[in-house]
C-alpha cells in the first residue's frame, strides 16, 4: 500500500501523471475504508485529498452553484447558499445515511464510487449538474449524465480527479419537485429504489418533466423515454400501460439480498404515478 498526502492541488495533479496502476482518492473514506477492510481493494495506491482547500467549499458564481468535490454532506445540509437556491436538493439529502456519516462522506466520493445506490446522483441528474474533471494539462466539464458508462465504470482518465460539481443557480426554479428514497429503514439505509423528479405544469399539462432513478440500473439514470412520453400531456392523456412499457426499456431492477426485482419495479411505477398525479 502506497499512501500520499499532497501539499496542494498542483502536486496532486503532478502525482497523477506518473501514476501507474489504479489510484484511489481518500476523501471521507466511508466507501474506501470499507472496501479495503472487506478485501475488495488490496494493496491500493492512496492519495489523501480531504485536506486540500481547493477541493472544498460551496460558492455561488456566474449563475452557478459550485460545490467542491470533498464537500461533506453535512456542509451541504448546513449551507445557506444551498438553502437559498437549491432547497429541494438540500432537503432531499437529509435521508443520506446518518448524521455521523454525513460529517465524513463527500459529494465527490459518492459520485466517483459509482454505486448504483449512490443517493446524490439521481438528484444531481435531474438538476442537470455538471462535474469538472481536472488533470495537470486540462480541466473539462461534462454533464453528470455522461459520466457513467457501466457498473462502477466512468469516463474519468487515470490522471484525472473530480474537482467540482456545478449546478445552475435556478435549476430548481418554478419546478414541482419529488424525491423518495426507499430503504429498509428511515436512516442508515442503502436505497432499494429512489426516484427524483421535477416537473413544470401549465394548465393541466406537463410542459417539462425530469425523472431519475437510483438502485435500479447499473448506475443511476435519467428516464428520458418516459420523460418524452409524458411531456405535453395532461394527466388524463397519460396511459400508464405505456409508461410501464417504456419503463421496461429503461430500467433493469434485480433481486439481491436486500430486495426483489418485482418490488423495485412496482415501487418505481407507483412513485412515478404519484408524482404525475401530484
Amino acid at each position: 500500500m502506497k499512501f500520499i498526502k499532497p501539499e496542494n492541488i498542483d502536486s496532486l495533479l503532478e502525482n497523477l501523471e506518473d501514476n501507474k496502476g489504479r489510484t484511489y482518492f481518500l476523501a471521507g473514506g466511508t466507501d474506501l475504508n470499507v472496501q479495503i477492510k472487506n478485501g475488495i481493494i488490496r494493496n491500493p495506491n492512496i492519495i489523501y485529498i480531504n485536506h486540500l482547500s481547493e477541493l472544498n467549499g460551496i460558492n455561488a458564481a456566474n449563475g452557478s452553484i459550485i460545490i467542491g468535490a470533498t464537500t461533506s454532506f453535512h456542509e451541504i445540509l448546513e449551507s445557506k447558499i444551498i438553502r437559498l437556491h437549491l432547497p429541494f436538493f438540500q432537503k432531499s439529502l437529509e435521508s443520506f445515511a446518518s448524521p455521523l456519516l454525513q460529517n465524513s462522506a463527500t459529494i465527490g466520493g459518492n459520485i466517483a464510487n459509482g454505486s448504483p445506490t449512490a443517493d446524490v446522483v439521481p438528484l444531481l441528474l435531474i438538476l442537470d449538474a455538471e462535474i469538472e474533471l481536472s488533470s495537470k494539462t486540462r480541466n473539462r466539464s461534462i454533464y453528470l449524465k455522461d459520466f457513467f458508462n457501466g457498473y462502477k465504470q466512468n469516463v474519468m482518465e487515470s490522471n484525472e480527479i473530480i474537482t467540482k460539481i456545478i449546478i445552475n443557480k435556478s435549476a430548481e426554479k418554478n419546478f414541482i419537485t419529488f424525491y423518495e428514497k426507499v430503504g429498509s429503514r428511515k436512516a442508515l439505509a442503502i436505497s432499494k429504489v429512489s426516484l427524483a423528479g421535477m416537473k413544470r405544469v401549465s394548465g393541466y399539462k406537463i410542459t417539462m418533466i425530469k425523472l431519475s432513478v437510483g438502485s435500479i440500473n447499473e448506475y443511476p439514470r435519467r428516464l428520458f423515454k418516459v420523460e418524452d412520453y409524458l411531456t405535453d400531456k395532461t394527466a388524463s392523456e397519460i396511459d400508464f400501460t405505456k409508461v410501464e412499457e417504456l419503463l421496461d426499456k429503461e430500467i433493469t431492477p434485480i433481486t439481491d439480498l436486500r430486495s426483489d426485482k418485482e418490488y423495485r419495479y412496482h415501487v418505481c411505477v407507483n412513485l412515478i404515478r404519484t408524482f404525475i398525479n401530484q
Partner: peptide, 26 residues
C-alpha cells in the same frame, strides 16, 4: 416488522447494513 436474517437463495445477512435493525428514526 423489519428484521430478517435469511433470504432463500441468498443466504444469511453479513452485517448491520443488510440486517435491518430499526434506527432511532424508526
Amino acid at each position: 416488522l423489519c428484521e430478517f436474517f435469511y433470504k432463500p437463495g441468498y443466504g444469511r445477512m453479513h452485517g448491520f447494513t443488510d440486517y435491518a435493525l430499526p434506527t432511532t428514526m424508526d
